[in-house]
Design a protein around this nucleic acid. Structure first.
Lengths: 140, 140
DNA sequence: ATCCTACGATGGACAGAGTCTAAGTCAAGA
DNA sequence: TCTTGACTTAGACTCTGTCCATCGTAGGAT
């Protein structure tokens, strides 16, 4: 992720402590934080950081394709730093936990031309839903 | 859709003019209204109907699996009365228009066991994104 | 090293989507 | 027709996110 900071600098980003902290928070695999969670973690290191800055920075990271925006439900969007390796998501219907998954097959090829209604289709997003192990246990 | 009203009555629903109007608004193919749009159309027939009632009724219809809730982006959820025939969605990234589509293949089979992380996977949701014909035209 | 200035940060108001609550209304069974 | 609990209502409230005016500062120019 440190190379993220490099790339951003290369793209003409003005490097500020706020942006650095947000980028650092979004580091690792299977990280799917909401904007508020990002703000909380960033504020742990840089107490004065404002919500607006976190939202702005996240939006920029998404625009630059450095971070993926994931809207799995009607609630808060989540931000996924694993934007360079294509993947899909597996979501727990109960607690909302998200895992990155890599299905086989190409869903794009599964949509016949006559089912495209003249659209220029550019993306497919697959969301698997179910119960995570610990939620499954508390049900039984 | 009139049989929806029958089914609901059979399930012990108290039939009110509000519920009837909401159910009537949600009739047809390729209908993907937001809660606010449902409210607007319902209010055209029953001016005093409140937003809360529309939300309550929609939630119940979703619980009863009579209507599908579709959260395609971070915006308002949409309600799809075509809940009995399995299908996926094709969404215009620009204007948000939705079409029901029927891809071939079974995405559920494309998720290997070792990629399930112990989850009990019950649903797959595939969302195709792109530009609808009219938005594609205004871009060029 | 210091100065400049445009880009970025701040916080508070605002907006959109949805939920909750307390009080009033009414569908439908007795 | 009466009764009652389920349903509806309006409006307050919450949550997520955006906007704006103002202030601060990164980093190039001197």
């Amino acid at each position: 992720m440190s190379d993220l900071l490099e790339r951003l600098r290369g793209r003409g980003w003005r490097m500020t402590s706020q942006r650095r902290v947000v980028a650092e928070v979004l580091d690792g695999d299977h990280v799917h934080l909401t904007a508020d969670e990002v703000h909380a973690r960033a504020a742990a290191r840089l107490p004065e950081i404002s919500r607006a800055t976190v939202y702005n920075t996240l939006r920029e990271l998404v625009t630059l394709d450095e971070v993926m925006e994931v809207a799995t439900d009607g609630r808060a969007k989540r931000y996924d730093p694993n934007a360079h390796r294509p993947h899909q998501h597996l979501v727990c219907s109960t607690c909302g936990t998200i895992r990155d998954v890599h299905p086989t097959g190409d869903p794009m090829a599964d949509l016949p031309v006559e089912e495209r209604f003249g659209f220029t289709v550019t993306e497919v997003e697959v969301t698997y839903r179910g119960l995570c192990p610990s939620c499954a246990q508390s049900v039984s």
